[in-house]
């Protein structure tokens, strides 16, 4: 044996779930989005679904992605790793995926709102920006 490849070890992804297997949760989520949208329109109440806390198979996620599709807006936020914000083909339904610095998904949410909070510029940041910009112009001007 002169090579690591000669060692008779096979590495198999041990995930026992079949890719074709749907748990039925994707369908439930889609119906919940419907309810959240109705509530949002009638009362203005924001809604969110935490996908991380639900047992979803790869096929479930695929079904969600295919059903919701990609809408007009997509954004990327660079704070301690990436955060992807994508509007789906259903306006007001947003898919937010939070990554760590290392690129691992640390949170995955569907939000029903006009604009997700994390996308908005925080008022205090705006105020601080104003100060900084004023300082800059004052210094040069």
């Amino acid at each position: 044996m002169n090579n690591l490849t000669h060692i008779n070890v096979k590495v198999i992804n041990p995930l026992p779930f079949q890719p074709a297997g749907l748990s039925g949760n994707a369908d439930a989520i889609l119906h919940e989005i419907l309810a959240l949208l109705e509530a949002f329109i009638s009362t203005g109440q924001n809604g969110a679904i935490d996908l991380h806390s639900l047992p979803l198979t790869a096929a479930d996620l695929e079904l969600l992605r295919a059903t919701l599709g990609d809408g007009e807006v997509s954004a990327r936020i660079h704070v301690i790793g990436n955060t992807e914000v994508r509007e789906t083909t259903y306006p007001g339904v947003w898919w937010l995926t939070y990554y760590s610095d290392e690129g691992n998904v640390v949170a995955d949410l569907l939000e029903v709102t006009t604009v997700p909070e994390i996308l908005k510029a925080p008022a205090e940041d705006v105020r601080e920006g104003l100060v900084r910009l004023g300082d800059l112009l004052g210094a040069t001007g």
Partner: peptide, 18 residues
């Protein structure tokens, strides 16, 4: 924003409402 992200991740971890 990073603070909000931190809170989002923690809330998700602890299964708090989104």
């Amino acid at each position: 924003r990073s603070f909000l992200k931190f809170c989002t991740v923690m809330a998700s971890l602890m299964a708090l409402p989104p």
